[in-house]
Write a protein that binds this DNA or RNA. Structure first.
Lengths: 87, 87
DNA sequence: TGCTATTACATACTATAGTAGATAAACCTT
DNA sequence: AAGGTTTATCTACTATAGTATGTAATAGCA
C-alpha cells in the first residue's frame, strides 16, 4: 500500500470539501502551496508532526487508519477502496 | 500535543506487549536498534511510511488518532492520558 | 476566445529522517 | 557483585522533508 498516495488523496478530498484552495490552505496551515500540491499528488512522505499540523488546520479531530486500504476521519469516512461490508 | 512522544510511547508499549526486544524488533522491521531507541523516547519525527512499516511489523492492523491526547489500536486502546469515560 | 483563478512543475536550498558502527549505561538473574 | 542482556548515547554519513521563488499548465467563466 502506498501511504503517500493514500494520505495525499484523502487530504485533497477533505480540503476541497471544506472549500479551501491550496493557496488559502497554505496560509492557514503555514505550509507552501507547492508543498501541498506535491503532498496531494502522493509525491511526499510527510512526518507525523506534519500530518498532525495539517489535520489541525483542516479541523479534523479524529483520524483512523485501517491497514488494508482505508483511512477514516470522524464523521467523514475516507476510503481508498469501496467501503468494506460492516456486517 | 507532542506527537513524537505520543507515537514513541505507544510503539514502545506495544513492542513490549508483543515480547520483542528493540534488537529483535530491529531485525523484524529493518530499522536499527538505535533508531528505535530514539523513536520510543520521542526524539524522532517518523514519516507516515515509517509508521506504516513499523505498524506492519508489530502486527497492528488498525490505528486510531483522536486529537486531544489519545491513540488507539485495534483491540488494544493506546491512551496517552487516563482513559476517557465511555458512557 | 481571452481572462482569471487555481494547480502543477522546476530549481535551489537547509534541516532532519534514517543508516551504520562502536560503546556506555542500566537492568536482570544468580 | 559478576556476567549477560537490553537500552541509551556518541559520531559521522546519505537521502529526503519542507522552504522559497518563479513560472507553466489547466480549468472555469465572461
Amino acid at each position: 500500500m502506498d501511504m503517500r498516495k493514500l494520505v495525499g488523496r484523502n487530504f485533497a478530498r477533505i480540503r476541497r470539501e471544506k472549500g479551501f484552495t491550496q493557496e488559502r490552505f497554505a496560509e492557514l496551515s503555514g505550509f507552501t502551496q507547492q508543498y501541498l500540491s506535491d503532498l496531494e499528488r502522493g509525491l511526499r512522505n510527510p512526518t507525523i508532526v506534519t500530518i498532525y499540523e495539517i489535520a489541525i488546520a483542516l479541523g479534523v479531530s479524529h483520524m483512523e487508519i485501517v491497514m488494508p486500504d482505508q483511512i477514516e476521519e470522524a464523521g467523514s469516512p475516507i476510503t481508498d477502496a469501496p467501503p468494506a461490508q460492516k456486517s
